[in-house]
Design a protein around this nucleic acid. Structure first.
Lengths: 264, 264
DNA sequence: GAGTGGTCTAGACCACTGT
DNA sequence: CAGTGGTCTAGACCACTCC
């Protein structure tokens, strides 16, 4: 009762995992595969779609379908939060040298490209609830995109929301042209007299929306990881809510939980 | 340039989000939708597939397609680890009362159903590396499935691996018929003289494999969250490696990071 | 049997790339 | 131009559910 496209996908997957099809190698054309497996073209395409979603194949329009070379996995560790907070205390010289993403991935700041955009908006229902403010409250919305220079694709996009009145005490914070701000958000907030005390991450997964497939350079079917980060200050107020999206086929989020010792 | 199936999916999505199609409501038949949108049947089906993957629709074979009623989201909080560790110290009476999943979701132990299976296996390359033992080392493999009684579907499946020789000192631990063990893994390990000190979670997302779609009751296209949990004891040894899989359309993993204060 | 969703086909046609 | 992948169609046929 197995579906035909699954039989085809299973066979190709097996060949890839066994190494019979080497990374970087070009597959036969779809029409040729259709003949070989005695199935129709749409069936072959569905099978290839499954393997693309799994990250095993890359189909390039007009060129061919290739076994994907192992892309460097992107790790994002939660200890970056402590690292970022500490960094806010360093000299400007030191702060300029690196950012959070390099801390995670081991990439250099020169390998990465950042894009940011600031808007002033009013809180919708969801954001108002997350920020614990009334709907309609004025917010500073900062949209970020991080990409690897050597690839054409974005590896993470993130939307950060701050309550406007909390950060407006330092007008420099409202100006996107000051990005990338040396020392990151913690240093920005420090200039506004705010200290972050704890961060809560909520992680889920879903298929990508149409615009996200283009930006992240993934096919529909590849899952994306979603992360909502909520930052609380030392008085327990919500300071920042950020929604981030990363491609699921190459991103690993890591978290460490330290446990209290049993009494002896 | 938008694809036709996206136009159809976008239109239906908009109607659902606006409430023009209420949760629980049945959609027109696919053939009827095809006429309405002036597209072919496969195109309608592709559009519906997108919305199913997003968790907005449930198509039931032979019955119809329905706007999905909001399923209860399943939260899994990392503070369950501390909670589970503390539980190992309670009396047997108290330990029997609850388990980790109830702690997370607020569900009662009576609402949930557990299934477990034990095997003895040899470590493959991946597991050997994760457990920091030589390949071929004898392992105790425990496979767990958790489901909600009122639904027919599994909400999480997990495979836990322990080094056989570490736990064999207590033969009761090798017997699946002792599950569910009151007090969970921490209590089990305590009887073997092992105390867990820290846990590292690695989270990613991918499309489901064929067998997972059936078990988790999801359609291909719905993303699954994958979690690898590595537990270290107080001497820094790896004690347990567990791989868990959860449906991405209703699971939220949460983690808290406490930050050190700045010096004043 | 009637109505529903699920899978597959043969083939048309388009879009992209490199020569 | 030839060769590749991408989208869509009309329709056949099957599987499931309810009456």
């Amino acid at each position: 009762m197995a579906r035909k496209y699954e039989r085809v996908a299973d066979d190709l997957r097996r060949k890839i995992l066994r190494g019979e099809l080497a990374p970087g190698e070009q597959l036969e054309a779809q029409t040729s595969l259709a003949e070989r497996y005695r199935v129709s073209l749409p069936t072959v395409q569905q099978a290839l779609g499954v393997l693309e979603a799994e990250g095993l194949l890359d189909a390039i329009h007009g060129i061919g379908t290739y076994v994907r070379a192992n892309k460097q996995p992107l790790r994002r560790k939660a200890d970056r939060y402590q690292w970022e907070k500490n960094r806010a205390l360093l000299s400007e010289e030191e702060r300029k040298a690196t950012g959070g993403t390099e801390h995670d991935t081991g990439l250099n700041v020169d390998d990465l490209e950042f894009y940011s955009e600031y808007h002033i908006e009013e809180a919708d229902h969801d954001l108002a609830e997350a920020l614990e403010v009334p709907p309609g409250t004025r917010l500073l919305h900062r949209a970020y995109q991080t990409s690897i220079k050597s690839e054409r694709t974005v590896i993470s996009m993130s939307d950060s929301y701050l309550v406007y009145d909390m950060v407006a005490v330092n007008p420099d914070l409202l100006d996107a042209s000051n990005e990338p701000w040396p020392g990151g958000t913690h240093h920005q907030l420090r200039t506004a007299g705010i200290e972050i005390d704890r961060v809560i991450d909520e992680v889920s997964a879903r298929p990508p929306r149409g615009d996200e497939t283009e930006l992240l350079g993934i096919k529909p079917g590849v899952a994306v990881l979603t992360l909502r980060k909520t930052s609380y200050d030392v008085d327990g107020r919500v300071i920042e809510v950020a929604n981030a999206i990363m491609p699921g086929d190459r991103t690993i989020l890591t978290f460490e939980t330290k446990l209290e010792r049993w009494p002896s």
